[in-house]
Amino acid sequence: MTRCDEPRGTLQVTGLRAGYGRTTVVHDVDLVARGGRVLGVLGPNGCGKSTLLRALCRIVKPTAGAVELDGVDLAGLHRRDLARAVAHVPQATAGAFSLPVAEAVLLGRIPHMGMRPTAIDHAHVDRALTMLDLDALAARRVDELSGGQQQRVGIARAIAQDPRVLLLDEPTSALDLRHRIDAMDLVHQLAHEAGLTVVVAVHDLDLAAGYCDEVAFMHAGHLLVQGTPAETFIPETIKRTYDVEVVVTSADDGTPQVRPVPTATRPLLPALRVTC
């Protein structure tokens, strides 16, 4: 597919390098996130998934490479225009101050509004609250909610932002099974029905296989491979990424399923050698 054939909302990443101070965390990453699709970023803790997402929306300024949205270099956009195009949901951060849920979601309208929110801004908030099943909690303060509910508030804020690209940093890490499935259903809907480009960092391989149209495996800041789950979920890739042995099987619908191979039993503690 040539660039002019790409669907709207295509995020093209070329040679992206980013880090903190003199430490480079993401090394020369090339990837494509397509409009109306979900791209899962997989990899072990500390491999650079969060930094990659932060570099995509320029929270961390890349030291090399380019990120283009529909051929427009994001580096050339004013930060407000960038925020209208790309929304980022960081992992939950507890703060000293808190707001009612509806007002916390209204923060997502900051790139769009002037001094005061308009009826349109409130309508976006109402829609986001409904989509995340937060209507009943709208008047509650965010710090009174559970970790999972706070994560949903973060996603609602990003939806209220009305972006073309949604970057989600481990959005299911604090959710129970019901809300994890709900959240990934929503992510899938946002991409396939609303046409958003969704890039989501996830840990759960089965969840990624079930909900992501494509996945990208990362290890030590490098992108190992990008492709559909069926193409990339192979024991060798998972071994290179996580250093674990797995067996990959297929469900009836062809979705890959990952099952770890138990390692050889070894004592949890080194044997004590008692000498007298």
Binding site: I59, R80, H88, V89, P90, S98, L107, G108, R157
Partner: peptide, 16 residues
Amino acid sequence: DAVAFAGDDAARGLGV
């Protein structure tokens, strides 16, 4: 509001 309630990262993501 963005910095106080959402943190530095989220505020930057909101164009602040």
